[in-house]
Design a protein around this nucleic acid. Structure first.
Lengths: 183, 183
DNA sequence: TCTGCCATGTAATATGTTACATGATTGT
DNA sequence: ACAATCATGTAACATATTACATGGCAGA
């Protein structure tokens, strides 16, 4: 079977409420983008295959004017499949590839200024991330009575913890490079 | 051009000392595996292409007995290419896909016990990681007079910071789930 | 009119892993 | 003898991004 993960993301999101492909993408970017991403090239084929497998069904073909939007909802079969996957142990090796760290690791071959600049940019990016998290926080609080909210807060908190740890490290690392530079 | 990143990893590592493909893989697993991985299917073709581009050269064909090992070293052209890449800003979106977090996010559709178990396994994995970091620490201290050591310590510290943040989060998250379970 | 968002989708390309093939060397 | 590690490599597969194509709708 192909596109394993993508399919489970879709199933999971459809337990919240019926959504269209477009809404799924938007939801991802507004809630789990800090640890998960999907592109159109994966999303739409996966939607089709899930429908073919009867794990989701077309609930409604909205036609606002002439514009069509396919609203999918999860089926019983889909819920079962999701639950099975949730219960499975992850053989996952989370592929982590951090290009910044790679460049810093090779810092001896670069200029100290270059490495410092890299860290500054990283710091700026992490700060942006923390701001994005505040947006996600708002989304969650809008659903604060939902039975999902507890889990959403936990995953968000994970992102925040790492962002804070990262910021602290960036500052420390930058200080180390700057003191090295003075000598 | 293909295999961009892999090629720069190789170039970077060859600035430390000439290595064979096998040694490169080993070095990766002993030093940067917490933020970078390469498989044979990428490594060997990339070595060939780098050689073709004259960014690396076959320094020595060791023939210990009859077993051959290709010892590559970086060329001037390779050093230039590396330096250019190091100076480039990362358009990088570090693809982060964390299956654990995804499952936790969908925790409402699973059992609380399942989510707690997931967190426990994660905790165990992180603890293992922290132990691996101690091994990396040893490797670094063996090279402590190398001009690379400063940079290596920084990237290692990054891993340690995140692992610690993650452990703390795991415990907190587990506590939150357990108190939720009691009600 | 033009920009930006809504909305679905595909083809080409890039990237990466897995599993295997091959065979030597080293230690028990 | 046997297992582990050294050592290089490939083919098939799996996964993912990019860049487009298409077109409606809303508002300045």
């Amino acid at each position: 079977m192909k596109n394993q993960k993508t399919k489970f993301v879709i199933l999971g999101l459809l337990t919240i409420e019926p959504m269209s492909g477009y809404e799924i993408k938007k939801f991802i970017s507004e809630s789990i983008s800090h640890f998960w991403a999907e592109s159109n090239g994966q999303l739409y084929p996966a939607l089709r295959e899930l429908a073919r497998q009867e794990c989701i069904e077309l609930k409604e073909k909205k036609l606002n004017g002439k514009q069509e939007s396919h609203l999918y909802s999860i089926t019983k079969k889909g819920r079962v499949a999701l639950k099975v996957w949730l219960g499975e142990a992850n053989r996952g090796k989370s592929i982590s590839r951090d290009e910044d760290l790679l460049k810093l690791f090779f810092g001896k071959s670069a200029s100290i200024q270059g490495s410092i600049a890299l860290l500054q940019k990283r710091e700026a990016r992490i700060s942006d991330k923390l701001n994005q998290y505040k947006e996600i926080q708002k989304v969650i609080e809008r659903h604060s009575h939902s039975p999902h909210a507890l889990y959403w807060r936990l995953t968000l908190k994970n992102g925040i913890c790492h962002a804070q740890a990262e910021l602290a490290w960036c500052q420390e690392a930058r200080a180390a490079l700057q003191s090295g530079e003075e000598q």
